[in-house]
Amino acid sequence: MVGIGYTMMTEQAGPRQLVADVVRAEEVGFDFSVASDHYFPWLDEQGHASYVWSVLGAAAQATERIPLMTYVTCPTVRYHPAVVAQKAATVQLLSEGRFRLGLGSGENLNEHVVGGGWPPADVRQEMLDEAVGIIRALFGGGYVNHRGRHFQVESARLWDLPEQAPPIGIAVSGEQSCRLAGEHADLVIAVEPDRSLLDAFDRHGGAGKPRVGQLPVCYDPDREAAVTRAHEQFRWFGGGWKVNSELPGPASFAAASRFVTPQDVASAMPCGDDAAEFVDAVRAYAEAGFTEVALIQVGGASQQPFLDWAGKELLPALRAL
């Protein structure tokens, strides 16, 4: 059976609502949750970008069962990997072992804010590889010193370590990232039901490890309203990772998606309240080999109605997968 997750999308809701929503997601029966780590929203219409690590700490205290996960954190530019290790260890302690650390090579959208420039993709992968090694070393306990190509670590140690280190997931979009994930990750992360990514992950050592996908959806009893909202807030999504990782701000995403129509968005994600359409979209991930799929309900104000509907109709329908 495919695990069904709920996404705390920090770009479309404030921190208090994010916590309230994940509490409700736990109540209605979602299997796990993930949270985005953004400094900017993708589009101005989304309107939010709170500090996810504070949200995760609050969510860890407000919930009892539901696993938590970053989807994903970039441990290379805006954050130093030694600091990411400390954040993750702390959330693992607060959640009593319910946290997984999802990592990725990042987007210019969020990382440009520290003024360090935006490296090319191959350099970003090198940085992520080195960062994962530092995080693993700190999770292992004791003092860590590191003199690397991209990072320096001077006598760092995590003084509050959980008994079990957070499992590390790595987001993939091509052969290079699949190799990195297969060699170094406990699970793989992707945002499209592309079987070739999972096959590459397996070739590099990922066979048998969990694989987590993510799917945007837009529930609304009024399908036209759902399509309108999905287009307003999520029309950027179809640009593809090679484009989305490079654009520097919401204005760039608005310009890049100016010719995307509501019909284009509606054809790319389930919209409305037909549970069968949502199930078909998840089935594509299941058939590609994903073991877990996190749903993103588009629209901050629509979360609680979506969660109520999911508990009554969608999750029971998805259990058949």
Rank of each mutant, 00 (worst) to 15 (best):
I170N: 04
S196L: 11
Q86T: 08
R157P: 00
L158W: 02
S257F: 12
A89D: 09
Q233C: 13
V132A: 06
R16C: 00
A85Q: 05
S257A: 15
Q214W: 11
G208E: 09
Q86K: 14
L103F: 06
A156G: 03
A207G: 11
G5A: 05
A230F: 01
F201W: 06
R100H: 09
F237K: 07
A137E: 10
G97I: 02
I135L: 11
G104L: 05
T76Y: 05
F151S: 06
P119W: 00
C271S: 06
A288H: 07
R124N: 05
D308G: 00
L18R: 03
G115H: 07
E192W: 12
A13N: 10
A156P: 01
D264N: 14
S155N: 15
R179Q: 14
D222A: 11
V265K: 06
H48V: 01
Y79C: 03
R235D: 12
A58R: 08
Q176E: 12
R24A: 13
P193M: 11
D122S: 15
H38L: 06
A85L: 11
R124W: 09
F306V: 00
Q214V: 10
K242Q: 13
K209H: 02
A251Q: 15
E26S: 08
D273I: 00
C218T: 04
G57H: 08
R203W: 06
A225M: 08
V34M: 13
I296P: 01
D274G: 03
G47I: 04
I296R: 11
E163H: 10
A88C: 08
L318C: 04
S50F: 12
P210T: 10
H112V: 05
Y71T: 00
S252Y: 12
V293I: 09
K242S: 14
Q233W: 02
F253S: 12
C74I: 00
L128W: 10
E246D: 13
E175G: 06
N145K: 07
G102R: 00
D220L: 07
D199L: 14
R229Q: 14
D199F: 06
G115I: 05
R98N: 06
E175V: 09
A20E: 15
R65H: 14
E277L: 14
Q297S: 03
E11C: 02
H48R: 08
D222Y: 01
Q297H: 03
A171R: 01
E27A: 15
G104C: 03
G289F: 07
R149H: 11
K209Q: 09
R136W: 01
C218M: 10
Y219S: 04
E287G: 07
L103K: 09
G300N: 02
V2F: 04
D44L: 05
L94H: 02
G57P: 08
D220V: 07
Q303F: 00
A181F: 02
V77C: 07
G141M: 09
A58L: 06
E96I: 03
N108H: 15
S33G: 00
G106M: 08
G117K: 04
T76E: 09
H80N: 12
K209W: 04
L93Y: 01
T291G: 15
A251E: 15
H80W: 05
G311Y: 08
S54H: 13
L315Q: 03
V279N: 06
A200K: 11
S257M: 11
R203T: 07
G213W: 00
L180I: 02
A254V: 10
S177N: 03
G182A: 03
W241M: 13
